[in-house]
Structures are given as structure tokens and as C-alpha cells.
């Protein structure tokens, strides 16, 4: 049982306190959040397992279609995880928007965070002209904000 997909939880790397992400992926997340406003938008950026590199943008349907809640549709969730498994990928980034509040994990977000290896990105679209884009680790109910380093280019 070797390989990145079989690590024990306590062996998971929480490598850096930085999210390094390409600008076009940031733009894609913000665009999705704007498009679905006032409902919350959600999705994943998958990347090679163990790489901590967000690469493949996967916008998801918010099955709750709500301005205060998001949930991946259960069949979409299954297909997404199958696909990532087949590609040897992980959900490097899990993003969603808050449409009337700040881009900080709510109690609900913290209680339901089940991917300790992921960067949880929050975007706030409460302001029409500017947006907040922030990233967090959420592990065992503990929230740690991290720096977001945006790289130019594809």
C-alpha cells in the first residue's frame, strides 16, 4: 500500500502555509463566483497527488442553490472523486463563495471540512467592484489562514 493515495492521515503533508496558484485559475474561481451570485458557487482545483499544485479547474454545481449554503451533488461528487482517482489527482483547492459576508470560514464550513490536505479558498462577492480571495487550512476544526501567491502565466 505505497504511494501518495495511501498515506496515513498523520503522514499527510501540510507542506507550506502558502497557496501558490496561477492567475488564470484565480480568475476562473472569481468568474464562477460572480456568475452564480447571489447563490454560493463551489468547485475544486485538482492537481497531481502529493504535488500541492492546483492545475485542473473543476467548477461544481451547488446542489443547494442557496445564497447561504453549498453542497456538491452526490453523484457529481462520486464522479469527481472517481476521476481524480483515475488521474492520480487530489483536490488541492476546494473553493466556495460567500455572497453577503467576508471570505472567512463559517462555523458550518469548519464543521464540514473533511479534506485536511486541501487549501480551502473562499471568495466574497458581497462587494460588486472588488472581491476578497483568501485561503485557509482547516484541520480538526482548526482554521489557519495562509498566504496566497499568484503566479502569472498559464
Amino acid at each position: 500500500m505505497a504511494g501518495p493515495a495511501h498515506r496515513n492521515l498523520d503522514q499527510l503533508p501540510y507542506p507550506s502555509t502558502v497557496l501558490t496558484i496561477r492567475r488564470h485559475l484565480v480568475d476562473a474561481i472569481v468568474e464562477h463566483a460572480r456568475k452564480d451570485h447571489p447563490d454560493e458557487a463551489c468547485g475544486v482545483i485538482a492537481g497531481p497527488a502529493g504535488s500541492d499544485r492546483p492545475e485542473r479547474f473543476v467548477p461544481m454545481l451547488n446542489a443547494a442553490r442557496s445564497p447561504t449554503f453549498y453542497e456538491f451533488d452526490s453523484m457529481d461528487l462520486l464522479h469527481l472523486y472517481r476521476e481524480m482517482d483515475d488521474n492520480d489527482e487530489e483536490p488541492v483547492v476546494i473553493y466556495h463563495s460567500h455572497t453577503a459576508t467576508e471570505a472567512y470560514p463559517s462555523r458550518t464550513d469548519i464543521g464540514l471540512a473533511n479534506e485536511p490536505g486541501a487549501h480551502y479558498v473562499l471568495v466574497s462577492t458581497r462587494d460588486e467592484d472588488t472581491h476578497e480571495f483568501r485561503s485557509f487550512r482547516i484541520v480538526d476544526g482548526e482554521v489557519t489562514e495562509e498566504e496566497v501567491q499568484v503566479i502569472d502565466g498559464e
Partner: peptide, 14 residues
């Protein structure tokens, strides 16, 4: 059988 935690959350507080 496959087990997957929901990916869910949101700004409302419960």
C-alpha cells in the same frame, strides 16, 4: 461500496 464525505459548507451558521 464507496464512502465519501460531503463537500459542503456555507456562510449560514447552524
Amino acid at each position: 461500496v464507496t464512502v465519501l464525505p460531503a463537500v459542503a459548507g456555507g456562510s449560514h451558521s447552524r
